[in-house]
Every structure is written in C-alpha cells, then in structure tokens.
Simulated scan of single mutants.
Amino acid sequence: MVSFRDVLFTQVSLLQGALACGFHAGLSPAENPLLRRSTVPDLPTKKILIQNVRVFDGHVILPPRDIVIDGSIIGNDSSDSDEIIDGHHDFLIPGPIDSHTHVQQISHMEDLSRYEVTTAFNMNCLNFTNCEIFKSQVGLTSIFTAGVPIIAPNSDHARTTPIPKSMLITDLSQAEFEENGPTQEMQDAAVRASHSRGMQSSTHASWGIPYQQAIQSKTDSIHHIFGESLFAKKWLLRMKAQGQFSVTILTVMWYGSENPIVREYLHGTTETSQTYPIYRENVKRLHEVGVRVVAGTDAFEAGMKEIEALRAATSLPAELCSLSDRGVIAPGRRADLIPLNSDPFVNISNTKDINRVWIQGIEYTDVAKLA
C-alpha cells in the first residue's frame, strides 16, 4: 500500500445527502487563514527521559518503563538526558490519528494539536498552495491531504460545497466524480484511476445504496455510515474480504440526525429516515464481522472495547495508510506522544485528561484541559 506523503488519495463523494462536514459551509475567515497564533518552534535536539510510565504502545499495554525522546524520534539510549520527567506511573499513548478532518486554516491545526491529535487526514483540498503550507507546519499536527473532491452536478455536495462548476464531474471519461451523484461506472473509474497512479481512494457514502456502490468499486476506505436501514451481512462480508476499511464519523452522524437545522441545510428538508440507533448498530455490525474501523472525528466506536478504540486511533490507521513512522511507541518512530493523567482502559473518556502533547519531539504547550 502506498504512502500518504504526497497528494495521497482521491476523495469520491457518493452521497445522496451531504454530511455535516466542515467544508460544506465554506470558509469566510475573519483573519488570514494561514496566520499562526503560536510561534514556530525550532526543530528538537534535546533528549528527554520519561521514567516510570505505563505505556500503550499502539497494540498492547506494557508495564511501567522508561521512554526516551531523542530529538524528533523515540530513542533507546537514556544516557546524558537533558531533561528527566517522572511519569508517576501515569499513562503514555501514541499521538492519536484523526482519519477524517476538514482543515481550512492553520488555527484548525492548532486546535487539533491542543486536543492531542498529532496526525490528521484532510479529506479535500480546494487550494493546493494552502494545503502545501498546512503540510509543513513544524510543531503542529501533521497533515496529509486528499485532492479536489469528486462531486457530480445537482447533488447535495454540489449545492453545499464551495467548488466551481468547472471542477464538477460531468463525464465518465473524467473519472473524477454523488443519488444525483456518480454512477457505479463513474465510481469504479475513479477508483481505478487512483489505483493506477499508486494512490489510495477514499469514498464518502452516507446512504445504503451509495455505500453498496462504494463496496463494489473496491475503494480503499469508506467514510461515514448509513442509518436508514440495517447493514446486510453479504455486504459486510464482501467489504471484509476486499480489505476495505471504515471511517464512520459517528459524532457527525449523530449531530446531523438530531439537529433539524443541519438536516435542512444538508438535504433541503428537516425530514429524514436515518436514525442514530441504526447508525450505531451498523458500526457495531462492521466491527463484529471484522471490518477494520478507524477513528475519524468520533467520540467512540459502537461495540469497541477501550483498547480497540485506542488502536483505531493509533496503530491501525498508521498501518492501513502505510505510515510506518508513527502510530506506535517504539525506538525510531516519530516522537508523537501523549502522557495522560488517568487510565484510558478504565474509561476511554480519560483520553481527555491530557498531561502534555509532543508532536515530533516538540512540546505543544497550549493543551486543552478537559478533565
């Protein structure tokens, strides 16, 4: 599987109704969106020793041990440390990865950093100059970005997304593409075009039929989940057999199903056949059959144990997206590290009890105090 280090994947929007994703409302910033609120730090050079800290390494829980931050990576030699921190038997987890965001300005990256997200996947890019700037912000959340989203005319996405008409898909030969969306043939062509260029494809589908189209196309990942009907087992098994993974975004789905103002904006009506209990049940079915589910702007994933939820936000997305330098705590990996004051395996909400945040060995000091 290819790396996400350049323009990493094609986003295919197969939605009958658009979703409560940030970019649909456009961006009218009150200030320069590229302006940093914090100063740019120097690249890290010092060695930090964290003693007596319980570690979740991305896969399993380890007994208390010492962890070394050696510049920008995790080291294995604690001699001549410049700083020693007593871990107090607290918890250390890899920096979480958010697999579905819409970053539109640098202040969004600073907010992600405050809330301990050290890597984020930006699900579309309408300005490549800005996206390149987002990818090179030392000491802030590391950003990987998709390109221009594939959207068809007359779809909800076309109505709510600030995208020029000239950039909408109108012909199968363009292979860059939503009921009123792309046909199965267009979806298939978009995925083939991505794979032929060594890129992953990411498909957004929030209704049952488009979700089936996404499965049939063998797209790499399917974002969102549908809530008007229950997931049929044959489609679950096909998704698993094809190695596709899911980014369900349950928090966003809950907000869209419960808020009539959001529903009217996205669908043009307050009526919906989708319900949060079905959204949640469908995520549970994905997990139970063994489809890999990763975290993307989710409060939690239905049916997951705490350790599974933490894997879904650390080692699993790193593995699925071929990010071999992060997602786990091991020598040689990026020093994306989050010490927690409370045990996340007692309650997953304890991941909000943040002590410190290191992003590639650089401490982000303006940490959110949520506990």
Rank of each mutant, 00 (worst) to 15 (best):
P63N: 15
L112S: 05
Y115V: 04
L112V: 05
D80P: 01
F56M: 06
D66H: 11
N52L: 02
G58M: 01
V103Y: 01
I73A: 10
H100L: 13
V60D: 15
V53G: 01
I69H: 07
S99V: 02
S72Q: 05
S79E: 14
P96Q: 12
Q104I: 02
S81D: 11
M109S: 05
V68R: 09
H108R: 12
S113V: 01
F91I: 03
D77C: 08
S72T: 00
P96Y: 06
E83C: 12
I48F: 02
T101L: 09
E116K: 15
V60M: 13
P64E: 15
I84L: 12
S107G: 14
M109R: 07
H88W: 08
G71V: 00
T118Q: 08
I61W: 06
D66I: 01
D82S: 12
I74T: 03
T101K: 10
K47F: 05
I84W: 14
S81K: 12
I97G: 02
I73N: 02
H108V: 03
I97T: 01
D77P: 02
I85T: 09
S72E: 07
D90V: 04
P96L: 11
H108P: 01
R54V: 09
E116L: 11
I93Y: 07
S79R: 14
V117R: 03
L49Q: 07
R114Y: 14
I106A: 09
G95Q: 06
P94S: 11
Q104G: 14
Q104K: 11
R65Y: 00
M109C: 05
K47M: 07
I93Q: 03
V103T: 08
T101I: 07
H102E: 07
I106H: 03
F56K: 00
F56N: 00
I85M: 11
I106Y: 10
P96V: 05
I73C: 01
D82N: 13
H59V: 12
H102I: 10
R114Q: 11
S78G: 07
K47R: 11
V117F: 10
V55S: 03
H108L: 09
S72A: 10
D70F: 02
I61V: 14
Q51I: 00
T118S: 14
I74Y: 04
N52F: 09
Q104S: 12
I85K: 05
